[in-house]
Amino acid sequence: MIGTLADGPIDVHAHWLPPELFDLPPGAPYGPLHDRDGELHLGDVPLSIPARAMSDVPAILDDMAAAGIGVRVLSAPPFAFPVAGPAAPYVDAFNDALARVVSGSGGALAGLGLVSLDAAGTATEQLRRLAAVPGIAGVAVPPVLAGASLDRGVLRHVLGVAAAEGLSVLVHPMQLPRPEWRDHYLANLVGNPVETATAVAALLLGGVVEQLPDLRICFVHGGGCAPGLLGRWDHGWRTRADVRRDSSRPPGESVRSLWFDTVTHDPALLGLLTAKAGKQAVVCGSDHPFDMAQRDPVGFAEAAGLDAATLAANARAFLGVPA
């Protein structure tokens, strides 16, 4: 439930995790996090991130001021998603801590909570609780889970409850490992965009946007590969019955009901996204505090022809906040 937000540009894609939850959910494939002399490590892998940038609210507010951000929407880093089994206590602890942080921010911070991904009933209860928490706009979820995406299983259930409860959904990739991506950071550079495009395709071709017209959902990193693939998806939809089996509109039409952030690292790709999805679909994102973050998100977006007022209005629409 989002009330009054501070004025200025809104960054919908930024991460926060308190130190007491650095152990990560049970069975987390990469964890736990460690603060080693002020630097974050995921297991034994250095993240090149100061620990305070992830968990210290004054440091986050300082970064916002330096970047010209008026409001930052905080969500858990993707390695804190509970993808390995029951994790309700961890999820509840994160949501409670997030609620405390945003409530004391004077409208400068908002939050997207976590939800259990092992049981639909537990997820429903958590989502209904989040809907009543001041400053919490919705939830962040992974794009794929246990061999499925947003059109089936627990993820599809979460989308249905979120739409019914008026909660926004942010979809963030998990950087899942594959043998062919083990070098050169390809699990991120290639894997993240592919995960996100898979989820966009599942949502559009699976007919989910038609089934849930009230769903407010945003894909980070500019939708990954999706903007460049929409033409291919449309061609497949028109020529193959199995592609259009679950949807009544081609993806190139349905995509205009989604939101995407600006973290594309390429003005030309941001221009393609805007052309395909519409200017109303683009919201400002930073991916703070990761190494792949857009350090000047407002300047980057404006250089690509997107004005700050439009971006802020789009973010408020995604978050369900009246202009």
Rank of each mutant, 00 (worst) to 15 (best):
A131I: 05
M54Q: 12
L150I: 03
A323N: 13
G135H: 11
L17G: 03
E165A: 12
P32M: 10
H34N: 04
F219Y: 07
S286R: 10
S286F: 10
S257M: 02
G278N: 06
L167D: 03
D35Y: 00
E125Q: 14
L150N: 01
S257L: 07
A148H: 06
H172F: 09
H235R: 15
G223F: 02
L117I: 05
D23G: 15
G43I: 12
G85S: 05
L74N: 03
E165I: 01
F290N: 00
R129F: 06
C284Q: 01
G206V: 07
R36P: 11
P227T: 00
A277M: 02
G206I: 08
L170W: 07
S55L: 11
D63R: 14
D96S: 13
E125C: 09
A313F: 08
A313R: 15
S149P: 01
H184E: 12
V161G: 00
P46S: 13
E253T: 10
A110S: 10
P89L: 09
G236R: 02
L145P: 04
R129H: 11
S149M: 05
L33R: 15
V208D: 00
L17C: 05
V190K: 08
V255C: 14
D96Y: 04
A303W: 08
L205A: 09
G236W: 01
A312Y: 10
A59M: 11
V282C: 06
L212K: 00
L230D: 04
L170H: 10
V133G: 07
